[in-house]
Design a protein around this nucleic acid. Structure first.
Lengths: 335, 335
DNA sequence: ATGAAAGCGCTAACAA
DNA sequence: TTGTTAGCGCTTTCAT
């Protein structure tokens, strides 16, 4: 049996209240302080935070719900977030829903039962109803990556459209006119935004939008590979390809390698979020990088503002962060 | 205010005991069942698992303590583990200690306070005392990757020495004699084991062990790069290099690329745990892969055996798993 | 099958 | 500064 405050009380002759107060940073007489410390040490006492939570009605726990844990995008954000939250005493319960909307809903319920004080979520289906209920119960929710339609909620988003515009603009300025894009699934927020950015750039540079050069993938390596391969094997392949997420960029690079194409001479390629891989690729890939650490940081900030009551009843806040352009030799002037 | 069982009691006229029993799968009259279900729905009731935990003395929570969350090695294991545990009602609180022994100890204390029912840990310093105390309190602990000296504890380990032996054997059989190894820090369990395997192989093939060809890194990309570069820039460079972890393999590949060396003609290279990267590298790297999913699975199994009391008082169990050899064109006969 | 009641370990009035 | 006490929401005997 683990020791409780009662045991300390018995050992020191003090009351529970005094001990509780001391444990929570209150002032007690030096003599008592010593006695308590001594008893704590002797008993190996540690607070039972379950009991504390029941009483204070704060679990000091934040739920984190993400599509998949094996993903630098998520883990980099979460690592930062976990650290910031830990610093002020919060635990993070992480749930991975394996890209499955049913699991998403199920695990959200699971977290809710756990009396989380706040939720950070990268939505897929979104679970609008459930999230709305959480917010009604004053439990702050912060979304990452994409908003949930019909839900007015704090969120940290990346300026996808702008980032996409800038990447494609570079290709256009390098003289490319047959610029293909490998997008994510239609209807997915980030995919739509990134496609808009692509179209914005073409329009801006007066390049005709050719639907044949717009390929819709599933944000996975497989489709990045297949779609790029299909583009490259055409009679008249594009001279440049812009790939709009991390996994698909893997696939695209694979297809390019397989065809022994030299970048940028035979093909210009711009990827997305490719920091790790980029350490070993030659030439280095030019990529649009999402500011992962900053996202984690901002999420923590938003959450804390709510938790500490500072932003108690403010309207939902959405923070838009800029992506970072990382240069590389994988794109260049049309030869 | 969230609804409680009391509210259901009031609404249905039943007692708390009856409701509790029903909620926990007990039998009640059909009429009462209906009434309760209806009340639950109407009130939007969900159990308060904090209160439940206080009463049952089981938090249904497993602590997970790892060196770093941005690491496929950890996340792949954890993703599997989280899933298995979730299926039987457990949450996982994940803590990342950023390779810092001070944080490791601190976060272990944090998890202990949280009344975790079990702990999964990839140790650095190990915190032997603290872990021993946990075990005294009958809280099962499962170690991953490396044991903690002087602590008799369940663990899931990889047969590092054997894997290393096999990899180096392939190089020897291909005719290489100047085989270098990039190891981890001396004294680190996995590093020592992998180095033993290397030496085993050389001895087995009657190749003289040359200390100059044994380079000690820090298991990070930087040292993989630097040490490989240093080896390759020698007057008489090795003809083959075996790199013994994931990060260092990144670095090594980078160094090879930078020198425009062709694999396997100008250099044979065998890496470690390089699944992701390998999708885009050409030639594909030959690598030793640790069976991550299987580790996660085995950890869950060990943990559950303890939690369900099946292995209540069994002696510590250590499971040794085989690494997987993944072929690739990065090594070949000495030319 | 159902109910009454005690209590898990802690905090927070309130009183002294 | 310290102590007394009620009670957070739930489970679990023990009666009924």
């Amino acid at each position: 049996m683990a020791a409780t405050m009662k045991d300390i009380a018995r050992l020191t002759g003090l009351s529970l209240a005094t001990i509780s107060k001391y444990l929570n940073g209150g002032h007690v007489l030096p003599a008592n302080q010593q006695a308590i410390d001594q008893a704590i040490h002797q008993l190996g006492y540690t607070v039972n935070s379950v009991a504390r939570s029941l009483k204070t009605r704060r679990s000091m726990t934040i739920g984190v719900l993400i599509p998949h844990l094996e993903n630098v995008f998520s883990t980099s954000i979460i690592s930062e977030l976990e650290d910031k939250l830990h610093q002020i005493g919060y635990s993070t319960i992480i749930c991975d829903y394996h890209h499955d909307p049913a699991l998403e809903a199920e695990k959200l319920g699971f977290l809710t039962d756990r009396q989380i004080d706040g939720l950070v979520m990268m939505p897929l289906s979104g679970c609008r109803e459930a999230l709305a209920k959480l917010k009604e119960r004053q439990i702050p929710v912060v979304l990452i990556d994409r908003p949930v339609e019909g839900l007015d909620c704090d969120a940290v988003l990346v300026k996808n459209r702008k980032a996409s515009f800038q990447a494609v603009s570079r290709l256009a300025e390098a003289g490319h006119e047959r610029i293909a894009v490998i997008c994510g699934p239609q209807g997915v927020y980030t995919a739509d935004e990134r496609l808009y950015g692509y179209k914005d750039a073409l329009t801006h540079y007066r390049i005709k939008i050719d639907e044949d050069l717009i390929q819709y993938g599933h944000y996975d390596t497989e489709s990045g590979y297949t779609l790029t391969a299909r583009l490259l094997d055409r009679q008249k392949p594009p001279t440049a390809v812009f790939v709009t997420n991390h996994e698909m960029t893997y696939g695209a690079v694979l297809a390019v390698h397989e065809r022994d194409l030299l970048m940028p001479d035979q093909l210009s390629l711009i990827g997305f979020d490719h920091q790790l891989l980029n350490q070993v690729l030659r030439p280095k890939l030019a990529v649009v990088m999402q500011p992962l650490k900053q996202i984690g940081h901002t999420v923590a900030e938003l959450l804390l503002n709510r938790l500490t009551g500072r932003d108690h009843q403010c309207p939902a806040q959405v923070r838009y962060l800029d992506a970072v352009w990382q240069n590389g030799g994988s794109y260049g002037p049309l030869s």
